[in-house]
Design a protein around this nucleic acid. Structure first.
Lengths: 173, 173
DNA sequence: CAAACTGATTGCGATTTGCAACTGGTTGTA
DNA sequence: TACAACCAGTTGCAAATCGCAATCAGTTTG
């Protein structure tokens, strides 16, 4: 959007409270949705994030948020070798560790807000799975986004299970 | 700020995703800070929330957010019997159950952002205490905000322990 | 070579933010 | 009873942000 005066940082913060600092980075209506789509929808390109999201973010907002998330070290960007213009966005460890925040937020929303059935199923499974399932999913994210060595795998991944559950609900309706 | 056309609801939502719905309610830079101050600072009056917060919210924003949080069922307001003008704001069960969200957000901020020592100590203790400590603290919040029957208590409450830790760091500096 | 696709950028009106001043009322004190 | 201090907000206004639509320049596909 508006170019920031300095490349990054130097933004004076309102306080050194961890919650406040987190909100200064993520406290808007889009940033965490972008993280969500990268985590659960495996969206890695600008176009994917732009067009395949439920909520319909506009391109200038998306570009601005991606820039901020880059500056904050929550995501990285690298060139896609198959296409000179495409960039591949990846979560950093810092970004991956936002999963528990998203999981708690999803659990709260699932319990108290008018969540649609198909979009609620992931929240339910994630909530029921608890921190152990979150850790497993975060390991998978490390594989996909950080290129961490693949561990032994028995059965479908958490990501696959969440997707399968979603598909199954959509199918049934 | 701007009066909503209808008392509440009827705001069309971007999607039925639990994370999106949560962000539509809480996705701004102030709402969760107000919740935080009610939870950890035991701020219950307008003036307390206005003047005793680290970040310095302005009165119109505070009034607007309190209205929204009321509409959403996250807090309630009752008259203070000791003062005809004072209102007492309390968390609902729905509001109290935002604690895990705040705790995860605090833990993430504590790990990755330039948190001040005195304001980080609560985050550290809360993170180390884990879900078990959160549940204990939520029970205390139910006592203080919902008037739930007081359970047997051994030693200082979680709230007191967090406050004592904060005071101790401030003292030492 | 043209159409479609890529990651963005720009213009612009509508909305939201945030500061400061202010309102109408209540309480404490002399 | 006068008066200052305190209470919960409200109002005005300028600045910043949001969000839609159009556009852009380079890349790939047919």
């Amino acid at each position: 959007m508006t170019a920031r005066l300095e490349p990054n940082m130097t933004d004076i913060s309102r306080s050194g409270c961890p919650i406040n600092l987190s909100l200064e980075v993520l406290g808007d209506k889009w940033s965490l949705l972008i993280i969500r789509d990268m985590m659960f929808g495996n969206r890695r390109h600008f176009r994917e994030l732009l067009t395949k999201s439920e909520e319909g973010i506009s391109s200038n907002i998306l570009a601005d948020r991606l820039k901020t998330l880059l500056d904050e070290g929550i995501i990285t960007r690298e060139d896609d070798p198959t296409h000179k213009q495409k960039g591949i966005y990846s979560l950093t460890e810092q970004g991956i560790e936002l999963l528990p925040v998203l999981a708690q937020m999803a659990a709260w929303g699932y319990k108290y807000l008018p969540v649609s059935e198909e979009l609620g199923i992931r929240a339910r499974l994630l909530s029921e799975g608890g921190p152990k399932l979150w850790a497993e999913f975060m390991d998978e994210l490390r594989e996909n986004h950080l290129g961490t060595k693949r561990r032994k795998r028995t059965g479908p991944s958490v990501g696959e299970r969440l997707q399968a559950a979603y598909d199954s609900v959509v199918q049934r309706k």
